[in-house]
């Protein structure tokens, strides 16, 4: 047997890249659940709104309904999947006890957050990318500011990766975890302007919609693609960035303090 005293050279970034690799492999190995299912869901939405009902609806001057709804559907895929990746991976680790394998290693809290976040962002952005590719069968988008659109998609995936981490730490069981998705994210998405511009709502609903943080993400993304939106891109980006910073600080504090992870 070889000597046990010959530990290899310590590579400070290797714990991070290993955890990132593991997290990416985790969703990639069950791609039928993590990538294919959301893509099929998005395709069905695209078919319904792009090829059938969309022709009878007109909500934004100068654009058909498919052009209006596609940015929202892309971002919905990004948001749902970034959230699901972080929340399910971390919660399953906690639930099955596998997290202790990670807690005893030199992986630092910043590396922990970064690896989980980047894997979740990758999954969210992959679903968003494929949704856009499929959407080209139904409508062509004008792509007014592609870089700003990519920036908003990245910001949305980052923000919901942080929220996924937070939900996974606070969740006591699978029921409470699913409540975050079903009773918080889903209503906020549906009421945040994915399917309609909030300007068509009557008061007080249109005013209340400005309190929905997802409205700014969706509107900013649509603004960057179509060149028009319910609010200015600067406001949408500013509010979304602020929210992302708050959630990142919250997640960092939870992971750093070891809440629900270390007894």
């Amino acid at each position: 047997m070889s000597s046990f005293n010959g530990q290899g050279v310590f590579k400070p970034w290797l714990p991070f890249t290993t955890l990132l690799r593991k997290e990416v492999l985790r969703f990639w190995r069950v791609a039928s659940q993590t990538l294919l299912t959301p893509i099929i869901t998005a395709s069905l939405y695209l078919f319904v709104f792009g090829a059938t009902l969309g022709e009878r609806i007109n909500v934004l001057e100068g654009f058909n309904y498919a052009q209006f709804v596609i940015p929202g559907l892309i971002l919905m895929g990004v948001i749902n999947n970034a959230f699901a990746n972080c929340s399910s991976s971390l919660f399953m680790s906690r639930y099955l006890g596998g997290i202790v394998d990670l807690l005893v290693t030199p992986v630092s809290p910043p590396q922990f957050i970064l690896a989980y976040t980047l894997a979740a962002m990758l999954r969210g952005l992959l679903v968003g990318l494929v949704t856009w590719l499929i959407s080209t069968l139904f409508a062509e988008l004008p792509w007014q500011s592609p870089l700003l659109a990519i920036l908003m998609a990245i910001l949305a995936s980052f923000l919901f990766a942080q929220f996924g981490l937070i939900a996974a730490i606070y969740a006591k069981n699978f029921d409470t975890l699913s409540m975050y998705g079903n009773f918080l994210i889903l209503p906020l998405i549906y009421l945040g302007g994915v399917f309609y511009p909030i300007s068509i709502l009557a008061a007080p609903w249109s005013n209340l919609s400005y309190l929905n943080p997802l409205f700014y993400l969706i509107d900013g993304f649509r603004h960057a693609i179509l060149g028009v939106g319910d609010t200015s891109f600067g406001v949408a980006f500013g509010v979304s960035s602020l929210l992302a910073a708050v959630l990142f600080g919250w997640a960092a504090w939870l992971i750093g303090s070891g809440k629900s992870l270390r007894s």
């Binding site: 590579k11 290993t18 394998d101 290693t105």
Partner: peptide, 14 residues
């Protein structure tokens, strides 16, 4: 994967 968490490259021989 596990060796990587400790910051050391996988040693196939070991």
């Amino acid at each position: 994967l596990h060796a990587g968490y400790y910051g050391v490259e996988d040693d196939p021989k070991w």
